[in-house]
């Protein structure tokens, strides 16, 4: 009980820090800590598979992808400063969401639910896999639609940057090449890449603004 409480305090504190800090990289690592604490919570709830997936996907995947996004984005034209109305709006949205979830949870008849099976058999990887492709197949397929949308969104954003040069947006290797600073960019493959692409200046720009951030 004490451990669970400590874990949840860490999760919430790290999440609050992630939401409030001005340093985007600190925010990412705070989020990773928060997600790690949630994985621990799953472990306490005796769901090792979900805990492992939480770490594998959210810390190993999503956080690293965020780190990657930060490095590829140009910080020079950074986010517009949020006005008071935007902050209030975001606050209201968050409170409304929390209230909605809380209302559903309080209203739900939790005692009437069937007692979850706690045997090791019921939570084996095989059983989870079978359930995913059998009982919860529709949900599983819906999740893949979400992934498809994410891929489509990424392609759309990538092709908007240099719409006239479709070769580089469709090719992940060349796409990364386009974002390399000049001294790293190899001569021959850069021929197909627009040298005036704003993204190519990103790392050096982020480097300069980062040193200011670190001092702040």
């Amino acid at each position: 009980m004490l451990t669970a409480g400590l874990v949840m305090i860490v999760a919430i504190a790290a999440a609050i820090f992630a939401a409030t800090t001005r340093n985007i990289v600190h925010a990412i690592f705070a989020l990773a800590i928060s997600l790690g604490a949630i994985a621990l919570a799953f472990l306490i709830l005796k769901s090792p598979f979900v805990a492992a997936m939480e770490v594998l996907i959210y810390i190993g995947g999503i956080s690293v992808a965020m780190v990657f996004a930060v490095m590829l984005s140009s910080v020079g034209k950074s986010a517009p400063s949020e006005g008071m109305t935007r902050r209030l709006g975001a606050g209201f949205a968050a409170i409304a969401f929390f209230a909605g979830v809380a209302a559903v949870l309080i209203g739900a008849d939790l005692d009437g639910l069937p007692v979850p099976e706690t045997s090791a058999e019921a939570w084996s990887v095989q059983q989870i896999g079978r359930d995913l492709l059998d009982r919860f197949n529709v949900v599983f397929e819906l999740l893949s639609v979400v992934l498809l949308l994410a891929i489509l969104g990424a392609v759309t954003i990538a092709s908007r940057n240099d719409g006239h040069d479709e070769a580089s947006s469709g090719n992940a290797g060349a796409g990364l090449g386009a974002r390399m600073p000049d001294e790293m960019r190899p001569g021959d493959s850069a021929a197909s890449v627009n040298p005036a692409s704003p993204a190519s200046a990103a790392p050096s720009a982020s480097d300069a603004s980062r040193s200011e951030e670190a001092r702040a």
């Binding site: 990289v25 690592f29 598979f49 492992a52 594998l56 190993g60 956080s63 084996s124 990887v125 980062r210």
Partner: peptide
């Protein structure tokens, strides 16, 4: 544990975060 292979890859994923922390933190 039955999740051995998954956990090995899970822990393997941390190295990237550490390397990025080092690279970013060094300024």
């Amino acid at each position: 544990i039955d999740l051995g292979l998954v956990l090995v890859f899970t822990f393997g994923g941390f190295a990237v975060l550490g390397i990025f922390m080092a690279g970013w933190g060094s300024n």
